[in-house]
Structure formats: structure tokens, C-alpha cells
Design a protein around this nucleic acid. Structure first.
Length: 690
DNA sequence: AGCACGCCGACT
DNA sequence: GTCGGCGTGCTC
């Protein structure tokens, strides 16, 4: 008997009811099963003779080698290249209907192919741990009827004309795909647009998927959606317990949760009634997974919207150059919110030239004076420095000895409060030597971190309470929330911190914000550093003057004439992006080219180089002149956590030839003699080149 | 990735 | 005489 054609339609139907007509094993369908192992492709298994054939998208338990694994049925095959004798029967069918529907399964297959990552592992990464391990796809009774929607809804501020236009633009595309870029300056009310669109989607019985960077997924954001929308809101992020994640996933899948808010992995959450995908802060680098399966949640969200015929709305005050280029190409429709909701004026940004100026622990006099003025006028002041700890180095002023990390090519950061040296790259930690090990002189902290700034400010402004917000100060659970609450209450007058402080929070009383060290971003070897710097400056600026008073922003730099910095100050982010896009076009860099980065590391420096040289030969042998290879070269920080790292950059103007070369070569890479001497990985569309 | 098998050093 | 080091090879 041949496989009935209805099996191919198993994607759409529920339980596969067709039974094999005989017990003879060679008439049983052969299932292609994706198994969570780092091997490409699927593995063939036999269905069970006396049980319904599992549908495509169902999980099955199988014997793989000597161990039992949970795999996913991808197709029902016509046969196998293997002799029947080598094909094992599955052990158990875990789902009677597809756990993941055809379009999501297709997306996962596409992603496995595009990012060159094993399909079984891609699928595993899309499932909560409980389901990965084979637990039934059922809600536990105690999880039923989760956060009931609020009683008092349909409130909130009235939309201004631009917000209404944004809502109307997206609303004219229900049920079909269109990409939108919502460019809304900080405080322009992007979230209100999201809420109104969500309401509209819910009113039509559709669901909404909202992706946010980890740092932006605060209880306030979730509370706002819960207060305003007449539906349970499922939340998905890394801090969730396994049980809560299981529950949220199934509530999304069943359609009970009308809104799903989550970080990047939520792009893979199944839903019953696709309505709208929103990606907030779409420029944020944390939307790209930077280890293992290195997907970009924004890009996959766009693809998912396309496959499922729903509009996709990307939102940012500082859009990625990729998205701006897609607007230029006519791929995305641009929607703008140019004014601050409530009419607050945008802050004025000025560069503070540090050249030949005395710096008091990283703070220039004009900044201190301006701080004094704002503090006296009851304003709050926010200072941003993307470097935690007390000082980024501990130095001997007599002989130049520096405390280096013994496992990395990096300086140890001095943490004064803990009286410890810590490496921020590998986590190595030790006590400082009492004197210089080379010449026995005294050691001194060199440079500034947030701790040192905090201490300096306490000396300068003893009457104004200072709070520091960074990973060190908020390690205790809930401490960030407590500190933010005390900031909003007005208790703290001076705020100093890292990205944690700059992103997403609304501090209505901040009237002065400052970026203490813009030079870091200007000297990085990474071509995206300048884009990140501009985004950070604008984000920090957005913290100032959200209330009634106009804000001021100061940016300390030794490069006040830097053309890109000037374009940002003079023409805003839009002008800056124009200039930088032109630079990227000239340099053949994204978004006008495709990149992939092949990385390798080993405890001996020789092996990564040797492996990448072999890889180079293999890739070059494809003879595609449209694909260029750069390297191999040592990573910008060659030694990290005791391992030597090197990389090979693969560049092409068009995506297709790059993909073709990678697809051709990747299987062979693993078979190279040097491959087993190194840990290697491929990063398609790398977010940074480090 | 696991988890085998397989072939050479210090112990009851 | 064995226990165990990790090199090499396979998993439908």
C-alpha cells in the first residue's frame, strides 16, 4: 500500500485517523523526525503498527542511539534511503494534534536553513522546557483562568492626530501582511498606539504578539496592557518559572490570551488567531540571540507576519539602519509620531568639549555647574556611563604596571565597595595586591566607572541624594523596582547608571541628562558602534524633560568635531542615519551587504587560525566572486576566558550567493581535520563583530 | 551533544 | 591483573 495522499494534508487536519491496512511493517509510513541534536536534517522512524500515525507537528518519543529523546514529526515520507532494518519505530506519540501548526513549523524550518543551525535544536528552542521534555500539552487546573482582565477598561488619553494616523495605517491591513516602521520620538506615545491597535485586534477576535527587549519588559509595561485590554495577557521572559512558561505558552496557543508580551524567544510562540505582531525598540541589539541558535527576533517577526498574513509594526525612536533601508526600498511603510504627546518640547543636546579641560573624576566643570542649576530648580539629573565598577583599571603610577585578567586580554575592573578586582569579560575575581608587584609602589584606580561617579557626586552635592543603577546595584531581586519607585517619588535627585537606567523608564522630573563618555563609541573597531552610540545618546536625551519643563542634554567628548556626532546634534537621529547609511553604502556594509561571521576558539592560539584557514580554502573553492572573505584574523579581544579566538568574515552584496556558499560548505566544515581542535560557530547577520 | 568503544598508565 | 584517561565515531 502506498501512503495515502491525505497524509500530506495532515498539516491541516487534527488527529490522523488513517490506519495502516496491514500489520506488515514495510507498509508503515516512515516519519521524518527532527531530533534535538547538533546534526543537520531529520531522522527516519517507523510509526507504530497498532496506534494512529502521529500528525505532522506532533511530538514523538524516540530511541536515538542509546538514549530517549523527544522529537517532532516534520513530514510523512514515501520511503527512506536507509534499509528498513536500520529504521527504528517510535516509542510513543505525545500529541494527538499538532503542537505547532504548519506555518510556524515552516518558519522554524526556514530559520534553521537561513541561520544554518540544526532543525531539531531550532524546534527545541521554540518550545518551553516542559514540552521539550515530553510533558503533555495541557494546562494544569490551577493555571486556568489566569490574570482576569480588569473590570474598568476602554480609558486612557485621547490620541493626537499623528497617533490616529498611525493606528489607521496599520488598521487598514488587518488580515494581510505589511511591514510598518513606527518612528516615534521618546515620549511621543508609541505605547498608546500599540494599545489602540491591540484593542482593535481584540475587537475582531484576533490576538496580538508584542516583542520587547529584555530590559524593557518591566512590570509597568505589562500592567499597562493588563489595565487597558479586556483579555488575559500572557508574559514570556527568561525569569519565568518552567510552570509559568508552560502555562503562558499554552494560553497563547489556545487563544485564551489575547495578548502575548515577551522577549525575543516569544517570536516562536504559537497562536490560534493571528492578528498583529509588534516589535518594540526594534533597534535593540538584544533582539538578536548571540549564542547557539543566533536568530534575530525582529527579522523572524517580519517573516512570520508574512507567512501568517498579519501586519507587523516595528517601533523605535532610533530605528535600526536595516529598517530605515527597508523603508527606502519601499518594503516597509513609515509612520511617524513627530511630536511629544502632551506637547512637551524635545530637549536641547549640546556637546561638551573635553579637550584641555580639567576633569574631576570624569566630570567637567560646565557639567557640574549645570547640575547645580537644575538641582536648585528642583529638577532631577541623570548621568549615563556605560561602565560599571569603580575604575576600569588599577595602575601603578610609578612603573606602569596594570592589573590584567589572567584569562583575558583585558584589564581587571576595580570594585571599591567589594574591594575586589573583577574581569567583566570572564567573571574572574581576585583581591588586589597591596602594593605594585613590580616596584612595590602604591596602586591607584585609573578611569571612571559608575561607582566612582556616584562617590564623586556625593562629595560634590552632599545635599542631594544620589542613586546608582547598574547590574551591581540591582542584583537583588526587586531592587531595581524599589530604586525606580524611589526615583519617581522624588527622593533621589541625582541618578547615575548604565543602560539599565537609560532604557524605557519614564522619569518625569529629570530635566538634565548627560552622557559622560561618548568617546568609547567613537573609537570601537565595530562598525555598528557609532550607530549604538547615537541610539544611546537619543535614548538618554529622551529621559530629560518628559514633564512640563524643557530638558537639557550634555554629551562629554574629546571629539566635538566628529562629523557623525555633529550630524546627530544638528539634524537629529534622522539626519545622522542618512549620513551613516551613505557611509555604509560606500563601504559595502549592512544594510547594503550581507555578512556572516565564522568564529573559532581553542586553548591554543594556533588551532582557530588553522581551522579558519582551512575554512577559507573551502569557501574560496566555491569560486563565487560575489562572495568575499576577510581574514582569518584574531578576534578584537583575542584571548577571553583562557581561550584564543579568531574569526573569518564572509561578505556579499546579495544575500543569495552568501547563503548558497554557506549551505554548500557548512556540512564540510565539521569534517575538517582541524574542526575537532576548536569550538566553532557561524553567525549569520552578526550584530557585532566581536 | 551524548554515549559508546578502544587502547595505554597507576592502583587494590 | 583491573579502573579509567579521553581520542574517534555514530546516532534513523
Amino acid at each position: 500500500m502506498t501512503r495515502p495522499d491525505s497524509m500530506a494534508a495532515g498539516l491541516q487536519c487534527g488527529i490522523m485517523t488513517s490506519q495502516p491496512t496491514s500489520q506488515n511493517s514495510d507498509t508503515l509510513p516512515i516519519l521524518q523526525v527532527a531530533v534535538p541534536v547538533p546534526l543537520p536534517g531529520c531522522f527516519d522512524y517507523l510509526a507504530l503498527a497498532d496506534a494512529p500515525v502521529p500528525v505532522v507537528g506532533a511530538r514523538v518519543r524516540v530511541m536515538f542511539g542509546r538514549r530517549k529523546l523527544v522529537g517532532m514529526v516534520m513530514t510523512h515520507g514515501r520511503g527512506s534511503e536507509l534499509p528498513q532494518s536500520r529504521i527504528k519505530p517510535i516509542l510513543e506519540v505525545l500529541d494527538s494534534s499538532p503542537l505547532i501548526d504548519a506555518s510556524l513549523l515552516g518558519l522554524l524550518q526556514w530559520a534553521a536553513d537561513y541561520y544554518q543551525y540544526p532543525l531539531g535544536e531550532v524546534i527545541a528552542s521554540a518550545l518551553p522546557k516542559t514540552l521539550r521534555q515530553g510533558q503533555p500539552a495541557e494546562l494544569k487546573p490551577r493555571h486556568r483562568g489566569l490574570p482576569a482582565p480588569c473590570e474598568s477598561l476602554g480609558s486612557g488619553p485621547a490620541l493626537n492626530a499623528e497617533q490616529q494616523q498611525a493606528v489607521a495605517a496599520v488598521s487598514s491591513h488587518w488580515g494581510r501582511f505589511q511591514g510598518f516602521l513606527l518612528e516615534g520620538i521618546t515620549g511621543s506615545g508609541k505605547t498608546e498606539v500599540y494599545l489602540h491597535l491591540a484593542q482593535a485586534a481584540l475587537a475582531q477576535g484576533k490576538q496580538v504578539l508584542v516583542l520587547v527587549p529584555e530590559i524593557a519588559l518591566t512590570p509597568q509595561l505589562v500592567a499597562r496592557f493588563r489595565e487597558r485590554l479586556p483579555t488575559p495577557v500572557a508574559v514570556m521572559h527568561s525569569a519565568l518559572s518552567d510552570g509559568d512558561r508552560h502555562c503562558a505558552w499554552l494560553l497563547a496557543r489556545s487563544g485564551e490570551a489575547g495578548v502575548i508580551i515577551g522577549t525575543r524567544s516569544a517570536v516562536f510562540v504559537p497562536w490560534a488567531r493571528p492578528g498583529l505582531i509588534i516589535v518594540d525598540e526594534e533597534h535593540d541589539p538584544s533582539l538578536k540571540q548571540h549564542e547557539g541558535f543566533r536568530y534575530h527576533a525582529r527579522d523572524l517577526a517580519m517573516l512570520r507576519g508574512h507567512r501568517e498574513s498579519v501586519p507587523v509594526l516595528l517601533g523605535s525612536a532610533t530605528p535600526s539602519l536595516e529598517s530605515l533601508a527597508n523603508v527606502q526600498r519601499g518594503q516597509y511603510q513609515r509612520v511617524r509620531l513627530p511630536a511629544r504627546a502632551g506637547g512637551a518640547e524635545l530637549p536641547r543636546i549640546e556637546l561638551l568639549d573635553l579637550r584641555r579641560r580639567f576633569l574631576d573624576e570624569g566630570l567637567a566643570e560646565p557639567l557640574l555647574e549645570r547640575m547645580q542649576k537644575h538641582l536648585q530648580q528642583q529638577g532631577q539629573v541623570l548621568l549615563f556611563l556605560n561602565r560599571r565598577g569603580f575604575a576600569p583599571a588599577l595602575l601603578c603610577h610609578d612603573c606602569g604596571w596594570v592589573a590584567d585578567c589572567r584569562r583575558c586580554d583585558a584589564r581587571m575592573t576595580w570594585h571599591a565597595r567589594a574591594a575586589r578586582l573583577r574581569c567583566h569579560h570572564c567573571g574572574y575575581e581576585c583581591s588586589p595586591p597591596p602594593r605594585c608587584p613590580a616596584c612595590d609602589s602604591a596602586l591607584a584606580p585609573q578611569g571612571e566607572g559608575t561607582q566612582r561617579i556616584e562617590a564623586a557626586l556625593q562629595r560634590h552635592f552632599p545635599d542631594y541624594p544620589v542613586v546608582r543603577i547598574d547590574r551591581d546595584s540591582t542584583s537583588r531581586k526587586g531592587s531595581l523596582e524599589d530604586a525606580l519607585a524611589e526615583i519617581r517619588s522624588g527622593h533621589y535627585r541625582i541618578l547615575v547608571g548604565t543602560q539599565m537606567l537609560a532604557k524605557g523608564h519614564d522619569f518625569p522630573d529629570v530635566t538634565l541628562a548627560a552622557v559622560l563618555d561618548a568617546d568609547q563609541g567613537l573609537f570601537s573597531s565595530d562598525f555598528r558602534a557609532i550607530e549604538r552610540l547615537a541610539q544611546t545618546i537619543v535614548q538618554v536625551a529622551g529621559r530629560a524633560g518628559r514633564g512640563e519643563r524643557r530638558g537639557e542634554v550634555m554629551v562629554q567628548t574629546h571629539q566635538p568635531d566628529h562629523p557623525l556626532l555633529r550630524s546627530l546634534i544638528a539634524g537629529g537621529y534622522a539626519r545622522f542615519a542618512e549620513v551613516l547609511l551613505e557611509e555604509r553604502r560606500m563601504a559595502q556594509l549592512p544594510p547594503y551587504a550581507s555578512l556572516a561571521l565564522l568564529r573559532a576558539e581553542a586553548t591554543e592560539a594556533h588551532w582557530p587560525q588553522a581551522f579558519l584557514s582551512e575554512a577559507y580554502q573551502l569557501l574560496a573553492a566555491q569560486g563565487d566572486a560575489r562572495v568575499q572573505l576577510w581574514g582569518p584574523a584574531p578576534a578584537p579581544m583575542e584571548r577571553r576566558a583562557g581561550r584564543y579566538r579568531a574569526q573569518l568574515l564572509i561578505q556579499a552584496e546579495q544575500r543569495a550567493p552568501l547563503q548558497a556558499v554557506l549551505r554548500q560548505c557548512l556540512p564540510q566544515l565539521g569534517t575538517l581535520e582541524t574542526a575537532r581542535r576548536v569550538r566553532w560557530s557561524l553567525d549569520v547577520d552578526p550584530a557585532d563583530l566581536h
